[in-house]
Nucleic acid binder design. Structure first.
Lengths: 213, 213
DNA sequence: CGGAGAATAGCACGATCGTTCTTTTATACT
DNA sequence: AGTATAAAAGAACGATCGTGCTATTCTCCG
């Protein structure tokens, strides 16, 4: 169980393992976590099927490890940048913007990893589904926590049930993701941001970058 | 190209074809449109693979026909009931409620067919993706049209850009769908309805059934 | 009710699926 | 530098994939 955190000299196997998982996470946003196949992943990474397979005892392990890799990428690309913003409504907004940004930048080619995986695996009970549910729950909890912080600071209007607000924000973000991936409609980001601003009753456009188009 | 509309005496082949497609549409909401396999569908319908295959020249044809079958089901189960409501905001609300209802009633076991298919096929160019995009576009256009009608009747507040409103409503509906399918969270319907009512600035709870939980 | 034509089953194909085993190659430590 | 060991490749397995072809069974009309 060698968790590789800040390890100065990662061994060869650890490096390729990480490379495989990054590729797996990317492929999963296109073909789905279930649709992801070992042969295809081997081709994409330039390895042999069995050479690749030596890193994971089974496809299930591979899927779970890919989810963990995607989570780490999500933390690096979305959460950490956003959490630099000052606590309160600005941080909440920064999180929404960071999410939309990572979709637009195609950090994953098929958009948000967890949105894709959630649908792909949604109706299939099992460990993979459980893992996705857990990630989703943790993401919604974060949104809710930031919403709660903004509410405590009195930066939210009357309608400020954090759980309800988190649900609505998540809905808008995922809708923009889908619209962008499916139709290439970049204006969906503007729509989502506009709705987020409206929902947060933001009147001061200088709070963050203003919504557009 | 024998379109079967109101045909009094459908031939045997037409009947089984329809049964196959209904099952295919249902399976596709669980396994995805790509993940749907001929052998699995044969098993589910109690037919042989080739007997089933005789109805469709290829898997692509099967997928496209399944989409059409799902569209028909969606029309019957969601659109037609909702369009009985009086024109304006009531009809718009009825449409949202009918959508949520068809998810809750598990008309498709994996929730909204098009939400599932959109993600499944979102990053894979081809005829199947094009067909899904077309359905989605037509659904959003309907939402937009009903929103526009409500606006014309002066039933919507100031912020009443129909396209923007359609985007937001669609986001809430799909979010409830995902939450329900993934987590079995029936309270998501209440959240979505509450957000829809708030967004439509509905003050008279007698307009339709009030939101709950 | 009998026969023409539609509907379905049986069977086989090459490809790919997930997985295991054995063998070869590359890495890392003393 | 040489060797113990880790990492990757090769080959093969049974199963299932999508897709044809041929044979059998059923349906409906005269």
């Amino acid at each position: 169980m060698g968790v590789t955190v800040g390890n100065a000299t990662p061994t060869k196997g650890e490096r390729t393992r990480e490379a495989i998982l990054d590729e797996a996470a990317r492929l999963a946003t296109v073909d789905g976590l279930e649709g992801l196949s070992v042969g295809q992943l081997a081709r994409a990474t330039g390895m042999s099927k069995s050479g690749l397979y030596a890193h994971f005892g089974s496809k299930l392990d591979l899927q779970l490890a890919a989810i963990e890799a995607a989570r780490q990428t999500f933390v690096d690309e979305v959460l950490i940048p956003a959490l630099h913003a000052p606590r309160g409504i600005e941080r909440l907004l920064a999180l929404c913007e960071a999410f939309l940004s990572h979709v637009e930048r195609r950090v994953f080619p098929g958009g948000c990893f967890f949105a894709a995986a959630a649908v792909d695996v949604g109706a299939r009970p099992g460990p993979v589904r459980d893992a996705i549910i857990e990630q989703r729950r943790s993401w919604l909890t974060l949104l809710e926590r930031l919403a709660g912080e903004a509410a405590e600071l009195g930066q939210l209007g009357s309608t400020a049930d954090p759980a309800q607000l988190a649900f609505e924000l998540q809905a808008l973000l995922v809708a923009a993701n889908t619209s962008f991936i499916l139709q290439g409609d970049a204006s969906a980001f503007g729509r989502a941001l506009a709705a987020v601003h409206a929902r947060l009753q933001i009147t001061d456009p200088a709070a963050t970058s203003p919504p557009r188009t």
